[in-house]
């Protein structure tokens, strides 16, 4: 039972690390710059990888057929007369425009003027796969950093409140209640309205993390306070205090490690919440702005009935969210089962 729990923790953690490494190495994995528009190929569907051509001949290298517009309504069909072979580890000059660092070595690509869109293109003809990977950098790390900020605040404030008790506890916990009552989405709207109009993508990113992280500490800090309250009654804590250890030493060495299981479990729960927060803001047009991708602003096109009805691959970042969230929740479950048991 224990072993299965441990394995589940390691498996989901490893899978999450892989996902994060993948989005961090978008410069290598993504075939294109995520902001480059191909205005002749809006809403091109995902290309199929082929090994056997129309003449029945087998190719060792996978290849794609170019899309050819058919009819007037953004319909495409494969042009079977040309073959674009996929090459691996390619170095090629690509039209980039400086908004992202354009790594010259890419995992795969086709020779210019060919193109390969394995997950299709969006309404400006931008490669969805590249946008998914680069967008993941923003969305996944907004969640991670926001949760880290929340948790450190929660550990500090919850620890202090629980350890000192009396009026310190009162002030911090009443403050926590105020923060729990704050609707962060309106707070973000309000903050946005006060700031200068044109925030760069980086400022917006940190603003999002800041607000979401700063408003989210309340709930975990209450849990941590509870753990600290019980931990400070333990004999070894009393003993340490008797030996004259300072409060910060006791918190660090004896009390907060007790709270680490709660903190980790809470962290695994907070990250997906915060990813969702970023996605919500960007979906509403208040997060990361065009042309940079985030999973939220990629989904924004689905607000249009027409897109929702016609092009499933625009929802790709939504599909990508499902396994990421399942992994985080699985991790949180497993952590709770294991560390919760270990704690008691």
């Amino acid at each position: 039972m224990m072993v299965a729990g441990a394995r589940k923790i390691w498996l989901s953690a490893a899978a999450l690390v892989l996902v994060h490494i993948a989005v961090l190495s978008a410069g290598f994995l993504a075939p294109y710059d995520p902001v480059v528009q191909n205005r002749n190929l809006p809403f091109a569907p995902p290309m199929h990888l082929h090994f056997v051509d129309s003449a029945g001949k087998f190719h060792v290298r996978p290849f794609v057929y170019p899309w050819q517009p058919s009819g007037d309504h953004l319909q495409y069909q494969e042009d079977r007369n040309r073959i674009w072979e996929i090459r691996f580890l390619v170095r090629q000059e690509q039209p980039g425009n400086g908004t992202t660092h354009n790594a010259s070595l890419r995992l795969f690509g086709v020779d210019a003027p060919g193109y390969v869109f394995l997950v299709g293109t969006d309404d400006y003809g931008r490669d969805q796969l590249s946008r998914l990977l680069y967008g993941g950098q923003i969305s996944l790390f907004a969640g991670l950093l926001g949760a880290a900020l929340s948790l450190s605040l929660a550990l500090f404030l919850g620890g202090v409140a629980g350890y000192f008790g009396s009026w310190v506890d009162d002030v911090i916990m009443r403050g926590a209640e105020v923060f729990m009552a704050l609707p962060w989405i309106y707070l973000l709207l309000a903050v946005r309205a006060f700031l200068p109009l044109h925030l760069g993508a980086r400022q917006t990113f940190f603003l999002l993390i800041g607000i979401v992280g700063l408003t989210g500490w309340a709930r975990p800090s209450r849990l941590i306070r509870g753990v600290v309250l019980s931990a400070k009654q333990r004999d070894y804590v009393r003993a340490a205090r008797g030996f004259g250890a300072s409060w910060s030493y006791i918190l660090r060495r004896h009390v907060l490690p007790e709270a680490s299981s709660v903190a980790l479990t809470q962290g695994a729960l907070l990250v997906p919440q915060y990813i969702l927060a970023e996605i919500t803001m960007s979906f509403l047009g208040l997060g990361i702005g065009e042309p940079l991708p985030s999973w939220g602003n990629m989904l924004a096109a689905l607000q249009r009935y027409y897109v929702l009805n016609s092009y499933w691959w625009i929802a790709i970042s939504g599909f990508a969210l499902v396994p990421v969230f399942l992994l985080y929740y699985g991790l949180s479950d497993a952590l709770q089962a294991r560390l919760g048991n270990a704690g008691s």
Binding site: V35, D123, Y124, G285
Partner: peptide, 10 residues
Amino acid sequence: RTRMATIIQD
């Protein structure tokens, strides 16, 4: 209009 602006931006 948002989409026109995105094209102009590019």
